[in-house]
Design a protein around this nucleic acid. Structure first.
Length: 425
RNA sequence: GUGCCUGUAGCUCAAUCGGCAGAGCUCCGCCCUGUGGAGGCGGCUGUUGUGGGUUCAAGUCCCAUCAGGCACCCCA
């Protein structure tokens, strides 16, 4: 079978089992999002390239986006992220949307990267945002929703920590060290890599940015000060609100979290497994200038994104991924012979009309084979309609798990099966 | 874009020092002509990723190429 065309690099095939997992994740996301009063929305999956030029990181667009011309020559992009689309939708109806705006979304995204563990080229991402409120309560609510989902998936704060920092606090502390405003984005990126680079290389890069040895030493001290949040009204209010919202245990202050994206203006946070084995499960923060940057009226915002790939790995690691073996049907209607196929088809119809999920075997075949099929699909019941049953206007109902079977009047079969199904469940 | 590892049956993998390409699972048939899971017996499946080189002899060694995985970069 060398002739099978391989799937496109970095994509995943969702066989029914995997699809069930994806829908399980989606349903949990929807339940948690809706429990906080957020509305689902969706944007196009192809957008004009210009939409991303305004704000996304240079690398994200130039090197990680799928870009292609349409037949007229205009450059289109398979969306690599959702936030620019969000900014557009908000900007288009800025005056009419009641504020605060609470929206969530779950859909596919594409990035042209080298696939590896926890990273694919096609992935699904949950985005949730709260716009139009500058209150720290909004930040705490968004972050708490992230914790709420992790809990809904079966994880606990023993497994996961959501690390929190404030760009504002870091800005002030870095300014105290004498770093000019225009250099701070580069300094933040340097801070982001403190634990990723060997000490001497890190210092060399810092020197190259024009930082003195004294400033570099100051930055390192800054990264070690785990208690400095106590002097930040923003962070103390954040943690207090999380306490009130019942999610405090998930959060830790971590000065090394600054996040790579330039558009964050206040709180930033990311969730990781406590062993630090995987990359971030989710990440986000406050972005008060974003909508204005794409040409809309200024509106504040806070939100985060969570990809489906890493969270899947984390769930597997901690063994909390449910074994989803949902049977596709409640009952398999077997076909005894070609002559009796219409009778079986009619039975299947009657079962469906009664609200049962009934699967009709598509042809006459050995009963052994048909029952084996039901067994492999975990279908709990099977009906047998052979000459004996037809002669008596009966049908045999077999419960596969218990290997028991009973005969009942054909017309009573739907009710009997409903009772058996609901009794079994 | 940089580096490392791996390509053998539909799937997971063996094959000693270079010496006849194998096993388990799956699938199909039978044991069992109206009843599934377990068991027994039998059967199908291969240009060893591709191209070249060395050798009496290459899955095995060498070169190239393609594909996949992992790490860096970046990020969900």
């Amino acid at each position: 079978m060398a002739g099978i065309i391989r799937p496109v690099k970095g994509t995943r095939d969702f066989y029914p089992e995997l699809m069930a997992q994806r829908m399980w994740l989606y349903n949990r996301i929807r339940a948690v999002s809706e429990s906080y009063g957020y509305q689902e929305w969706e944007a196009p999956m192809i957008e004009a390239l210009e939409l991303y030029a305004a704000k996304s990181g240079e690398e994200l667009v130039k090197e990680q986006a799928f870009v292609f011309p349409d037949r007229g020559g205009a450059l289109l992009t398979l969306r690599p992220e959702l936030t620019p689309s969000l900014a557009r939708l908000i900007a288009q109806r800025a005056r009419e949307l009641p504020r605060p705006i609470r929206w969530w979304s779950f859909g596919p995204f594409w990035r042209y990267e080298r696939p590896q563990k926890g990273r694919t080229r096609e992935f699904f991402q949950w985005n949730i945002d709260l716009l139009g409120s500058a209150s720290i309560v909004a930040d705490a609510e968004i972050a708490s929703i992230g914790a709420g989902l992790l809990a809904a998936l079966g994880l606990t704060s023993q497994h996961i920590v959501i690390s929190v920092n404030s760009r504002r606090l870091m800005e002030a502390r870095v300014a105290d060290l004498g770093v000019r405003a225009e250099e701070r984005p580069k300094v933040f990126r340097l801070l982001d890599r403190l634990d990723k680079l060997p000490a001497d290389k890190w210092a060399a890069e810092g020197t190259q940015l024009g930082l003195s040895d004294q400033q570099l030493a100051g930055l390192q001290l800054l990264m070690q000060d785990r208690e400095q949040w106590r002097s930040s009204p923003e962070l103390t209010a954040f943690f207090d609100t999380c306490s009130a919202l019942g999610t405090r245990e998930w959060f830790d202050f971590d000065p090394t979290i600054v996040r790579g994206l330039d558009y964050y203006t206040g709180m930033v946070f990311e969730a990781r497994d406590r062993d630090g084995e995987f990359r971030a499960i989710l990440g986000g923060g406050r972005y008060d200038n974003l909508v204005a940057d794409v040409g809309g009226d200024p509106i504040t915002g806070v939100g985060f994104a969570m990809g489906d790939v890493v969270v899947q790995l984390v769930l597997e690691k901690y063994g909390v991924l449910p074994k989803l073996r949902a049977a596709p049907a409640d009952v398999l209607v077997t076909v005894f012979s070609a002559e009796l196929l219409p009778a079986s088809a009619a039975l299947a119809h009657a079962l469906r009309a009664a609200g049962l999920r009934a699967e009709l075997y598509p042809e006459a075949d050995k009963l052994a084979k048909q029952l084996k099929y039901a067994d492999r699909l975990a279908i709990p019941f099977a009906t047998v309609l052979g000459p004996d049953e037809v002669a008596e206007s009966n049908v045999t109902i077999k419960q596969l798990a218990s290997t028991t079977q009973l005969k009942c009047v054909l017309t009573a079969a739907p009710q009997a099966l409903l009772r058996l199904r609901d009794g079994a469940a």
